[in-house]
Design a protein around this nucleic acid. Structure first.
Length: 417
RNA sequence: GCGAAUGUAGCUCAGUUGGCAGAGCCCUGGAUUGUGGAUCCAGUGGUCGUGGGUUCGAGUCCCAUCGUUCGCCCCA
């Protein structure tokens, strides 16, 4: 074995990249239409940024970050998610004076995890963040946008939108106490993992996949029944808007978020088609994070979607035959090849898309490559054509051929299919 | 970090109780001396993941290791 990729990373080869481009272009188009503009933040940041934004005790920060000291001794981490850097950029550039501020990003993220289908150590997310819009309108619109994107990509079957409210600082603390009391009573029936969670993150127990824990979770007091007036209004408003937009959704009172910074609205789009890695898009409101990170008090909401998972869902959906296009110049004989290079450049100067056969050889071989390159027109330049300063134009769809003078080609090209 | 399966040609995979390394697809050439795809014929291509061990002999059995996949965990 020669040098191979690092564990958990992979190449996206040309066969696969059209699906990725479709993802990216569809997302750009829809995000833009909803009023979002692109932001590109660095791929690495000070480790402290993620520790504070994502939560120092979260699994992501504790054991999944690619962290290293740079040559100046600074602790640097490859970004494990997108929101922290966007919040940092928001604060650093004083953008609270430009509200509302709506941005999208797409790009690689890094987490040191055990690789699995749809889960890589370098993976890609695209997401949106919206600052300054406190009401449920922003939440509902964001979900509508996510679903529109998935619908446009035709991967909206086998998907469900789940929502929940996580409350806010005021109502979550008393609820948490209630929940803790309840769970401590059931401690004996919880899995080992969840007994551990009692200390660290009791809310997370609600989302445990263990059957016994789930049975207990269903009996537990629910956050949505203990919301303060403000949070309850917000959640009701959201559901009214979703209903009004005819977006199918279910309330999942057991859904909690992995990252610490969320409050009020949480949402998740899941699929049954990807095994254990079932989350396709997830997001929520994080009204307190900007202030916590040292900025003004600015409400915000965002989401991210996993592009590898979208690409997997896209697989097989687009059995589209790549359409034939462009010119492919093949030459026979040394003199013709030399002339062909010059002609190709001239034709390109005039705006034609001309691909030259790089390998030469028999005409049969060159035509085969032209076919595989999905060229629409083949330009044949052999000894005869060279002598009479013409080129043979062959349409690869119907096989029709015609002979043209060199300077006629550009004038003719507009008339071709 | 834990548990399990798996690794043979570029790809998908056969390979029997341990006894000569195989097929299909792809690729290249020919049938067609200047014409792609379809058909037929022929050909190239292998450190059997890697390193040890057992054996007269290992793709096959044993140990280790790396990768991949599935589950746990985590999450997009």
């Amino acid at each position: 074995m020669t040098i191979a990729t690092v564990r958990g990373v992979r190449d996206i080869l040309p066969e696969e990249s059209p699906a990725w481009r479709l993802l990216e272009e569809s997302a750009r188009q829809i995000f833009t239409a909803y009023g979002y503009r692109e932001i590109r933040t660095p791929i690495f940041e000070r480790t402290e940024l993620f520790a504070r934004a994502v939560g120092a005790t979260s699994d992501i920060v504790e054991k999944e970050m690619y962290t290293f000291a740079d040559r100046g001794g600074e602790s640097i981490s490859l970004r494990p998610e997108g929101t922290a850097a966007v919040v940092r950029a928001f604060i650093e550039n004083n953008l609270h004076r430009s509200l509302p501020w709506a941005v999208y990003y797409m790009g690689p993220m890094f987490r040191y995890e055990r690789p699995q289908k749809g889960r890589y150590r370098q993976f890609h997310q695209m997401g949106c963040e919206l600052f300054g819009a406190p009401g449920p309108l922003a939440d509902a619109e964001m979900m509508a946008m996510v679903l529109r994107l998935l619908r446009q990509l035709r991967i909206d079957d086998s998907l469900t939108l789940e929502i929940n409210s996580l409350g806010c600082k005021q109502c979550r603390a008393p609820y948490r106490e209630q929940l803790l009391t309840f769970l401590q009573g059931q401690q004996a029936h919880l899995c080992a993992n969840c007994r551990d969670r009692l200390q660290r993150n009791p809310l997370r127990i609600l989302d445990c996949k263990n059957e016994e824990c789930r049975a207990i979770a269903r009996q537990a007091p629910m956050m949505k029944d203990h919301l303060c007036a403000g949070c309850a209004d917000h959640f009701e408003g959201l559901q009214g808007l979703l209903g009004g937009m005819a977006l199918p959704y279910t309330v999942n009172p057991l859904m909690v978020r992995g990252l610490d910074y969320y409050n009020r609205t949480a949402f998740e789009v899941t699929t049954t088609a990807l095994g254990a890695q079932n989350a396709v898009a997830a997001g929520g409101r994080y009204d307190g994070l900007v202030a916590e990170m040292g900025g003004q008090t600015v409400p915000a909401i965002g989401f991210a979607m996993g592009m590898e998972r979208l690409a997997l869902l896209l697989e097989g959906k687009q059995a589209e035959s790549s359409r034939r296009q462009g010119y492919y110049l093949l030459t026979v004989g040394e003199a013709a090849t030399e002339q062909g290079v010059l002609l190709a450049e001239q034709w390109r100067n005039a705006g034609l898309a001309v691909q030259m056969d790089w390998l030469g050889g028999s005409m049969k071989a060159q035509l085969r490559r032209a076919d595989r390159a999905a060229a629409l027109q083949v330009l044949i330049l052999g000894e005869q054509e060279l002598a009479e300063q013409t080129v043979l134009l062959k349409n690869m769809q119907d096989g029709e051929q015609r002979r043209l003078a060199w300077d006629q080609l550009v004038a003719t090209s507009g008339l071709l299919p």
